[in-house]
């Protein structure tokens, strides 16, 4: 068993266990922490597969920016385990059964996939110089369009989150 295999199994157990922790923990803050750990282990998988740029971007964007945003919102709303709404046992059981059935169906679909040894493939494909060349040569238009997407998302978030104190229907309070 090589060091690659040991690292793969450790990271796999960590990512699956932390993903289970996300959906099973009562406290939303604990869920966010488990999700950050899941993202770190997925970044470890990226590094194992020689996708170094994506590993760094995953840590910066997901664990750094998005999860801090989630944590801000949860702490802003002062959510904890006491006010956490729970579904009934039957609905939770049905959710687990449907997820498990989906897993089984997809597993039956891909179990005959022909295996490819993954550590023998080329090693310099995930470096930022290669990715940057392809990004700015073949994918310039999607790159520019994504900037428009970010701008519209920013404007949308500001418009949605704005306090509507000038709204005419103030009789609710």
């Amino acid at each position: 068993m090589s060091i690659y295999d040991i690292l793969f199994w450790v990271l796999s157990v960590m990512s699956v266990g932390c993903a289970l922790g996300v959906i099973l923990s009562r406290n939303p803050v604990n869920s966010v922490m488990f999700l950050i750990l899941t993202f770190f282990s997925i970044s470890g998988h990226y590094i194992l597969m020689n996708a170094q740029f994506l590993a760094i971007v995953n840590i910066i964007v997901y664990a750094g920016a998005i999860m801090v945003l989630f944590l801000f919102v949860i702490m802003l709303m002062n959510l904890n385990a006491d006010v956490e709404p729970q579904k009934g046992q039957l609905v939770q059981f049905a959710g687990v059964i449907s997820g498990g059935v989906l897993f089984l169906v997809l597993l039956a679909g891909i179990k005959t996939a022909s295996p490819v040894a993954i550590d023998k493939a080329s090693i310099d494909i995930g470096l930022i110089s290669n990715l940057g060349k392809v990004l700015f040569k073949d994918y310039v238009l999607p790159f520019e369009i994504s900037s428009v997407l970010f701008l519209s998302a920013m404007i949308g978030a500001v418009v949605i989150g704005k306090k509507e104190d000038t709204a005419p229907n103030t009789e609710e309070q």
Binding site: I23, P28, P85, V91, G99
Partner: peptide, 19 residues
């Protein structure tokens, strides 16, 4: 596939919109 199924299960099981 396992991580995706765990995500599906969590979406169906929880009632908190943030989760």
């Amino acid at each position: 596939l396992l991580l995706f199924s765990i995500g599906i299960m969590g979406t169906l099981m929880r009632r908190n919109a943030i989760i």
